[in-house]
Design a protein around this nucleic acid. Structure first.
Lengths: 99, 99
DNA sequence: TCTTTATTTAGCTAATTGCCTAAGTATGTC
DNA sequence: GACATACTTAGGCAATTAGCTAAATAAAGA
């Protein structure tokens, strides 16, 4: 099946949005906006198993949205691109009905 | 399986991002930023079948991102929430490497 | 070293998504 | 009315995603 060049141009950008397009990952990003957190903290926050949360984090990391740093036995994640927080406002505008 | 209330809080916001998280839909949004377009124009732009494009548009509409208006035999779509265009800049920042 | 804690990777299954074709609806024209 | 055009809806199939458990890896402590 044929895909236009124009569509392909937006593939990397879609990948970033896709990485954010999950409630658990948005919760994580929101939490990281208040400072770095280890996987165990995020696991408790999200309320899923650690492997599940680890995969979400891996996805966000590969998308370039977060960074990780190992300190001792723990891995801390932090927001690498704070401007994604602006999305929350606009998304609210969408739900409110335009603007 | 148990899902925390915190995660649920982000579900509607994730739905909006999910609606945008596809290259064809981003292309459509980008095109609509320059004015309203009928489905046939967008179909040609995207380079897929009309039913496929119609479904993409339906998704964007249900997410609250675009509006449609039938005029004669054609249906015109327009951007309802221009602030989504800001996403493009931030996504580029993600790819560029932070900020 | 042995054990515990923190995290990731692998492998499985269920659910979702995206594309297609075919069929249905609505408008405009002859 | 018959037909063409514009669009949406339905149904099916392949690919992706999200969750889980189990197993692997790594650091810390007894």
């Amino acid at each position: 099946m044929l895909v236009h060049a124009e569509v392909k141009r937006f593939k990397p950008q879609a990948a970033v949005l896709k990485a954010l397009a999950h409630p658990a990952r948005l919760l994580i990003v929101d939490e990281l906006s208040r400072g770095e957190r280890c996987v165990c903290e995020l696991t408790e926050l999200v309320g899923a198993r650690m492997p599940t949360v680890s995969r979400h984090l891996s996805l966000l990391k590969h998308a370039g949205i977060v960074d990780d740093e190992k300190r001792g036995a723990q891995v801390f994640y932090r927001l690498r691109v704070p401007c994604v927080l602006n999305f929350f406002k606009c998304v609210q505008a969408v739900q409110a009905g335009g603007k």
